[in-house]
């Protein structure tokens, strides 16, 4: 297992390099750069050139890339070109903020999805299934920004239950205050996350119900609920573990739109602002982080799956 993990991690390095090269190249294809985003009209060309020189933007793109890479390898993500802030410091405060928002929403979505998926699968073709499936379809097609505005209108404006802006009231850091601020964005994200998962659970349930072991159980006279409790649910939950692994990068960049609308001080908003300003060190850092999480998440999913399902292990060994 250790060797397997090490191999997978080693295999990820060229992938991450390729991702970083593509992103870096794409950012530098744009016809303007970060200096344009904060240069003032009174600046002479000479002043702008001096700024470009200071940030190394006057060098050829491959050299800029190597400089950036050398920094990252030394664990130095560098500084935002716009704010001059350490990117590592910024991320250290923003990542926990994003996790605070995304983790509860994802767990909630998962719980809802498992229940709805199992129920729908068990009632395949019946009105209940159709209702759940329609609900999922609506959920998938709801644009997040629009749904967020509806939620703000209803709970924030009309009912006045929750504050609209940010993560805390000014000067407060206590838990009830955080919970009140969390309610609406968390609801929006939960609705964004659960339909996909529910469909996954449903189809997985349906395929399990067609398996021989279910027929055998039925033949032995087991009740439907017993079949579900003892057998089907376990088989359905195993593949869910992989979904959780794959969701890892979402913890960091899973809420770009929601964070922007609710002014939640997380990574998503930070990333979006940086893209607008062509602040490439920030964009690169966030993308590298999120692609690294994709790789790690995949790996985690594979490992968990191997742990959960002996058959995969055996096939892997045979191959």
């Amino acid at each position: 297992m250790l060797i397997y993990t090490a191999k997978r991690l080693a295999g990820a390095i060229p992938l991450l390099l390729a991702v970083s090269m593509v992103v870096f190249g794409a950012m530098h294809l744009a016809p303007y750069d970060v200096i344009d985003s904060f240069a003032r009209p009174d600046m002479t060309q000479e002043q702008e050139d001096r700024l470009r020189q200071r940030y190394g933007l006057d060098r050829p793109v491959p050299i800029q890339y190597l400089n950036w890479l050398a920094g990252v390898l030394r664990g130095n993500f560098g500084y935002s070109l716009v704010s001059q802030h350490s990117i590592a410091d910024d991320l250290a405060t923003k990542i926990p903020n994003s996790i605070t928002l995304v983790a509860p929403a994802y767990l909630l979505a998962l719980a809802i999805a498992i229940v709805l998926g199992l129920v729908a699968g068990a009632n395949r073709g019946r009105p209940l299934d159709t209702a759940i499936d329609t609900g999922n379809a609506i959920g998938i097609s709801l644009p997040t920004f629009w749904f967020a505005l509806l939620v703000i209108y209803l709970f924030g404006y009309h009912l006045r239950w929750f504050p609209i802006i940010g993560m805390h009231s000014v000067g407060q850091t206590d838990l009830p205050d955080l919970a009140r601020h969390l309610a609406m964005p968390c609801l929006v994200l939960t609705v964004a996350f659960f339909p996909d998962l529910a469909r996954y659970v449903r189809s997985s349930t349906i395929s399990q119900l067609g398996e021989d072991y279910v027929t055998v159980q039925r033949a032995f006279g087991a009740s439907t609920s017993a079949i579900f409790r003892r057998h089907v649910s376990r088989h359905v939950l195993a593949p869910i573990i992989t979904q959780v692994g794959l969701a890892l990068p979402m913890l960091v960049t899973g809420a770009v739109i929601t964070e922007t609308i609710f002014a939640w001080p997380g990574v998503g908003k930070y990333f979006l602002d940086a893209v607008h300003q062509m602040d490439y060190p920030v964009v690169m850092a966030v993308l590298l982080l999120s692609s690294a999480l994709v790789v790690v998440g995949n790996l985690l999913a594979d490992i968990l799956y191997r742990v959960a399902d002996p058959r995969v292990r055996l096939t892997g060994a045979a191959a």
Binding site: G156, Y157, I164, F262, A263, K269
Partner: peptide
């Protein structure tokens, strides 16, 4: 000075 970038959010607030 509260930092909010989305115009619709500002309107509701």
């Amino acid at each position: 000075l509260r930092i909010v970038s989305n115009a619709d959010t500002v309107k509701a607030a």
